[in-house]
Every structure is written in C-alpha cells, then in structure tokens.
C-alpha cells in the first residue's frame, strides 16, 4: 500500500474531515477512558494521521518519559505499516518523525503558562510551528475547566487543533447530560469532539463511543473499535 492510500483508508476519516487543520477554526478534541484502555494509542494514531497529511504535531506528554512516548510512535507506526503492508515504510517513518516534536513534563512542572511560553519560543524562533497539539496525561481531576478554557484561548490565536486525554475513574458516577463522565462532565461544552472508550468483554474489544462530533452531541454509536492486541483503530 502507498502512503496516499493509507491516508484515505484511515478509519479516523469518519471522525474528522480530510482537510482538518487547514480550514475553519481550530478544533478541540477529548479522548476519555479508564486507565489502560488505549488513550495514548488513539492520540498517537491521530498524530500519525495528521503527520501523514503533511502537518506538524507537538506531543505534550505529562508524566511519561520521552523514551516511552517515542516507543509509542515507533510501535504503532510499525503495526500500521505491517497491517497495511506499507511500501517504503522506513523512509516514510523518517519523514514523519521530522514533523513531530515531543515535550515531556513531570506532573509538578506543567502549567498552561509554561506551555504558552514554550509554544511561543518554538514559533518565534522558527524552530517548530505545530498544526496539531496533543496533551497526554493532563490532570483533569480537580475542576479542569479553567485550564482547559485557557488552552482553548491559547490555540485559537495560533490556529492549532488540540486533543486531550483524560482518565475516568471507576466509582465516580457523575455524568453530564450528554453522557460525558467525570471528571470532564462540566467541561463538555469546551470540546468539539469527545470520544469515550468502552470495553466490551464479550467481544473482547474496545468500542470508540463518539459522544460529540463537530460541536454536536450525537447518539454515540460507531463502528470504530480498538484491536485489543495492537490497539489499532479498526472500522468494523
């Protein structure tokens, strides 16, 4: 398979229009799940898709090491290349990696102000101008609305799409009207797209429930699932 076909075939197409990042106002997305279901895997696949289409991605990883984040990308790209029988995979990977930058923070040292400062540095010095920002490991547990609002304002001005991941905890039953679980139940208005991962023990897979898409709340039904062994998104 060629790179072009890979872009077209990507199941994420259901989720975002092909010109994402090029037109319209920047979008803010959220991936929610309990720990260990594959949030990072989904973010990385969103990133790879964005990069395949020639855009640059800044991956902000909070609490995870640089090495581990890199391995996520290497593993997922390798699995996709293998599953799709991608031609010239090594060259394409090299090319993609030059469109990606990873920023890791430990939990204590991350703040929106710091992110703003770093982004400004990168763009002003012409080091790296991202089209898409991923924030993995952001602590949503203590009413994150204010920080999320700040980030939304930050990226609006810079024309950057942004994706977050958030952990929901067993035992916390709070849920918003539209079905967005805690801790983001009060912030669901800030996002244009919200995906909730739901494991299905019977079918041995994880469903991607799209609760909100294009700014509208939806039924949440989709055909997208995660392959439990590779964590690749499949369209069934």
């Amino acid at each position: 398979m060629l790179k072009e076909d890979l872009i077209k075939k990507n199941p994420l197409r259901l989720l975002s229009p092909a010109d994402q990042g090029k037109t319209g106002s920047p979008q803010m997305g959220l991936v929610m799940a309990r720990a260990g279901l594959g949030k990072t895997a989904i973010l990385v696949q969103i990133a790879l898709d964005t990069m395949l289409r020639g855009n640059k991605v800044l991956h902000v990883s909070i609490g995870q090491s640089l090495e581990k984040t890199k391995i996520w990308y290497d593993d997922i790209f390798r699995d996709i290349a293998k599953a799709e029988n991608l031609e010239r995979a090594a060259d394409i990977q090299d090319e993609l990696m030059s469109q990606r930058m990873i920023m890791t923070f430990n939990e204590e040292s991350f703040s929106v102000a710091k992110l703003r400062e770093r982004l400004k540095d990168l763009i002003d010095q012409h080091i790296f101008k991202p089209d898409c920002l991923l924030v993995d490991g952001f602590d949503c547990s203590a009413s994150p609305e204010k920080a999320l609002q700040e980030i939304r304002e930050l990226v609006q001005g810079m024309d950057i799409n942004v994706w977050f991941s958030a952990v929901c905890h067993r035992g916390d039953d709070r849920v918003s009207q539209a079905g967005v679980p805690a801790p983001c139940h009060e912030a669901d208005g800030l996002f244009d797209t919200i995906i909730l991962l739901k494991p299905d023990a019977e079918k041995n897979c994880v469903f991607l429930n799209i609760i909100k898409h294009g700014g509208k709340f939806s039924e949440g039904k989709t055909n997208l699932t995660l392959d439990p062994s590779t964590l690749l998104i499949l369209d069934k």
Partner: peptide, 19 residues
C-alpha cells in the same frame, strides 16, 4: 538551546522538563 540546535540543521526529537 533549541535555537542553537535548529541552526545546526538539527531535528529536535523532544524535550524533557523537570522543574
């Protein structure tokens, strides 16, 4: 530091910030 690497045809893979 990032600027100096950028000037040298470098590709920044990532940064790690701890305090």
């Amino acid at each position: 530091i990032m600027g100096s690497i950028n000037q040298r045809r470098g590709i920044i893979i990532g940064t790690l910030e701890e305090g």
